[in-house]
Computed example of a mutant assay.
Amino acid sequence: MNQRPTNVSITMPPEQVTGVHADFVSAWHTQDVFVLDFAAVVGPGRPAEGPDGQPITQVDAQVISRVKLPPSQVFEIMKALEQQLSAWEAETGHRATPPSQ
């Protein structure tokens, strides 16, 4: 079965053009949807105690956007992020490294 290519025309409301800053994202899912909660840190970290009694730094963050996706879109997003990360690394000469824990 041949499928005709799809062209999606995306528009953006002017008030969203500048975007919002997110420090991290939390990903979770239900049976029918994947959810990405983008969050921004809202204050400095403070000393706290972890569940095991070890000292930790407690950081408070506020969800700034929740995006719900059908499972089929998650694969496309992962491919697009990989392509963009590879292009960024080639352009900047930097290798993206995860934050140290």
Rank of each mutant, 00 (worst) to 15 (best):
F34Q: 07
F38D: 02
R4W: 14
P44M: 13
Q83H: 12
V59M: 06
G53M: 03
A90K: 14
S26E: 15
S86F: 09
R95I: 12
Q54P: 03
W88L: 08
P5F: 02
K68I: 01
M12V: 11
Q3G: 10
E76S: 13
F34S: 05
L69S: 01
H94A: 09
G43D: 02
A90T: 11
Q73G: 05
S72Q: 10
R4Q: 15
M78W: 11
V74H: 01
M12T: 11
S26V: 14
V41I: 15
S26N: 15
A80C: 03
E15V: 04
S72F: 06
E76P: 00
P14W: 00
K79G: 11
L85A: 09
V63F: 10
V8I: 14
T6K: 12
P13D: 09
T97M: 15
A39Q: 04
L69V: 00
D37Y: 03
E89S: 05
A80S: 09
A80D: 06
P5S: 06
S72W: 04
R95C: 07
L69W: 01
W28S: 15
T92K: 02
Q16I: 01
E82Q: 12
L81E: 03
E82G: 06
Q58G: 03
F38L: 14
A90E: 13
I64R: 02
P14A: 07
Q101N: 14
P13N: 08
W88D: 05
A22S: 13
L36T: 00
V67C: 06
L81F: 09
E15N: 09
T57R: 13
P55Q: 07
D60I: 04
I56H: 14
L81Q: 05
T30N: 07
I64D: 00
V17G: 01
I77D: 02
A96T: 05
V17D: 03
H21L: 13
V17W: 02
R4A: 15
N2I: 15
E49T: 15
Q83C: 06
I77W: 02
V59D: 00
P47E: 12
L69T: 00
R4H: 15
E82D: 12
G50I: 06
L69Q: 00
T6I: 14
I64L: 07
P70F: 07
K68Q: 09
G43Y: 02
Q84F: 13
Q3H: 12
Q101I: 13
R66S: 04
G43R: 04
E15M: 06
L36D: 01
I10Q: 05
W28A: 12
H21S: 12
A27I: 11
L85R: 11
T18Y: 01
R66N: 01
Q73I: 06
S72V: 11
M12H: 05
A90R: 13
R95M: 10
D32S: 14
P13K: 08
G50W: 06
I10P: 00
Q83Y: 12
M1F: 12
K79P: 01
I56P: 04
T30L: 08
R4F: 14
V41D: 00
A80F: 07
H29K: 13
V74K: 00
P99N: 05
G45R: 10
P13F: 05
H29I: 08
V41T: 12
D32L: 09
G45N: 07
